[in-house]
Design a protein around this nucleic acid. Structure first.
Lengths: 196, 196
DNA sequence: CGTCTATTTGAATGTACTCAAAAGCGGTGG
DNA sequence: CCACCGCTTTTGAGTACATTCAAATAGACG
């Protein structure tokens, strides 16, 4: 059972907060409980919040015309999730953000975030750091998507996120890795001989 | 002929700088001239700089074992470019950054960047904003790569960056869009009838 | 012009997708 | 506690989008 102070330790990894600063940070967030399969962000509606996951797991995905879903990101404990194009630019969302398990998250509104940054440069620094880390992470993902085959992308994911790979439904993983669920199933069968 | 004050106007779009602040910013940069085909970042070497392009065009790419190149990003006037995983984490690069044309750029070292941010929260804000914009942009790119066919990705690029599409070699564009140069050539032939 | 680089073309191939259906798994209510 | 229901994963056959390899053509630059 992690409580909301988890975010204090998390932020402290990047900028050192005094007790009053920690208090100011905490008071900007609201705890939300999201049941499995429930959406907190939907296309055409604004996404006024970003979410920090305390417990559980969520994913962000876009739905194509033909009913296909494409997973853009996952989030488990200590990860952030939102539709960044909607949140940052305050425009209607194009993605769903939905709970894969019963989830407890802390949400931060766009307005509160601006207040935090205006009130204390440490928060500005914090958000700069997580944006940069997100940027670097996404650049790695783009490289993988451009350079590796479906099988290599799957192997790569297993290496880097073995726990997550077991935790999320296989079809969401397939759609994250850019392949169909049927094909991932066949890959697993093929690879089964070599690896666990 | 754009001179280095272009970066002042650029930064001013995001945070308002007083004349002394503009001066402090400028003094952190160094002007560099890069000839066509010359690399400013190479794999296995650290990338201690990020570059702001004043004139010309560059691209960042990774080279695969089989000799294939995969373009990660382009940069023309007012765009930034570097190997972010190398620059941000101060680790050896995995990418090349190379001039597509004779280019004039302003480079900012990682050390100077830290000084700027420490010295004035406005610079912290500025780097936060461009990181967030980069994040949102890359998220859009990931969505396109996951959801669209090669033909649609090309059409999309033509719509959004018609000038850039004419300016860069076709094989770099193909490698940016995640297809072979031969296939892009065939696509263009096929699409030729409908458009332009 | 001649050379080097970039683009086009064609034929054969392969990786990954579509569609349809069966099997597996988990939860939930009777 | 078993039976059923919905959701997820697996399997198979046929197909398509995109690649590979090789060679010809077109452009750019000195």
């Amino acid at each position: 059972m992690r409580d909301e102070t988890a975010i204090i330790s998390y932020v402290n990894k990047f900028v050192k907060l005094s007790p009053p600063e920690a208090e100011a940070l905490l008071s900007a967030f609201q705890k939300v409980v999201v049941k499995k399969r429930q959406s907190i962000i939907q296309p055409d509606f604004p996404a006024p919040y970003r979410y920090y996951v305390l417990e559980g797991a969520m994913r962000a995905y876009v739905a194509a015309e033909n009913g296909q879903e494409h997973t853009i990101s996952f989030a488990i404990e200590d990860w952030w999730i939102t539709d960044y194009n909607s949140y940052l630019y305050q425009q209607p969302a194009t993605m769903f953000v939905t709970a894969l398990e019963d989830t407890i998250a802390l949400r931060l509104s766009h307005v509160k975030e601006q207040e935090l940054k205006a009130q204390n440069p440490k928060f500005e620094t914090f958000f700069r750091i997580i944006a940069e880390r997100g940027l670097a992470y996404q650049q790695r993902r783009i490289i993988i998507n451009l350079t590796k085959t479906a099988e290599a992308r799957y192997g790569d994911f297993l290496d880097k996120y073995p726990l997550l790979a077991q935790r999320v439904p296989q079809y969401t993983l397939a759609s994250f890795l850019g392949m169909t669920t049927e094909y991932l199933s066949k890959l697993r069968k093929r690879m089964g001989s070599k690896k666990t």
